[in-house]
Amino acid sequence: MSEKTGETSERATASGSGTREPGPARRLLGALVRVREASILLVAVVLAFYFQAANSAFLSQQNILSIARFAVPYVVIAAALCLLLICGEIDLSVGQSFAFAPIVMYLAYDKLFLVLPLAVLVGLLAVALVGLINGVITVYLGVSSLIATLGMYFLLAGLSVTLTGGFPATPPDTNATTQVLGEYAWSGTIWALVIVVFLQVLLSRTRWGLHTYATGGNPLGSREAGVNVARIKIGNFILCAVLGGFVGIIEAFRISSIDPLAGGPQLVLLCIASAVIGGTALLGGVGTATGAFLGALVLIILQNGFTLQGISAYTFNIILGIAILIAMILNVYVARLRSAGRV
């Protein structure tokens, strides 16, 4: 009973002071379950070794850069979604914000003749508005966020195609801004790491983060304690949409194309899967941005490794499905162990 548990990495590092003497296997299992991030990291490392053994091109500089660049949108969106999931909500439309923000930016630049940094800002403001609308519909009108953001998903998908006429557009020519925002080979990766660190610090070191956990863990109790639950939820909806849109702009500059169809279901579903594999509880109260980041990394490594081995995308989906099921079963199992005071 006296052992510490941790859903935050900070607390998870503290050692327990149990009185029983469990066997080494059980102790290892307990440690893995307690330090969720470490177990996912272990999976990522094991996978990397396996793929390297199978194909020595896996850890080549070229392929590492490829993984690092490809993972950027997934990592950022998974970590951003994680905050929303922790406070008990979800945003299915974040993939569409990913596609929508660069389109608005492009129109502001191309049609309104704004300078690029200002056009980027307009794009981000547009998705901030999307997040605000998602939040207000959920919090004040009482529509489940699953439904509210599903509606927003289709609305944005339609808008994106309408605004571009259905064809990809080409982002502005190379300059300092476009270099910083994704054209330079490592810029996306640097942004992604900065954002994940920012979100993790926000979660485990600030009042906003603590109130996000409290809101998801006990919404009524948090309200009774005076936590502004509405503000926390709406704020996290906006944060999620803005980060989704921001990484969409980065991706547009990286691939030099603004694709109105970039926000398909695969993106958001993979990111939700990443967060869940990373230990985020879909019912709220538990999760870390670091976990979501590692969850996304594992999925990207799997996808990349299979591609190198020439295994089809269908097989990847089978593995992904199994991974999600195992992660969910593990979540339930951990919750049971915890409530029984055994971990």
């Binding site: 009042r207 603590l210 956990y213 409290a214 998801g216 006990n218 009524l220 109790g221 304690a225």
Partner: peptide, 24 residues
């Protein structure tokens, strides 16, 4: 009005947290 997932000391200071600058 306690949050099960949070520690005793975080519950104790819920919505009255002590901070240093922006940090808890």
């Amino acid at each position: 009005a306690l949050v099960n997932e949070l520690s005793v000391f975080h519950n104790m200071f819920l919505n009255g947290e002590l901070t240093v600058g922006p940090f808890l």
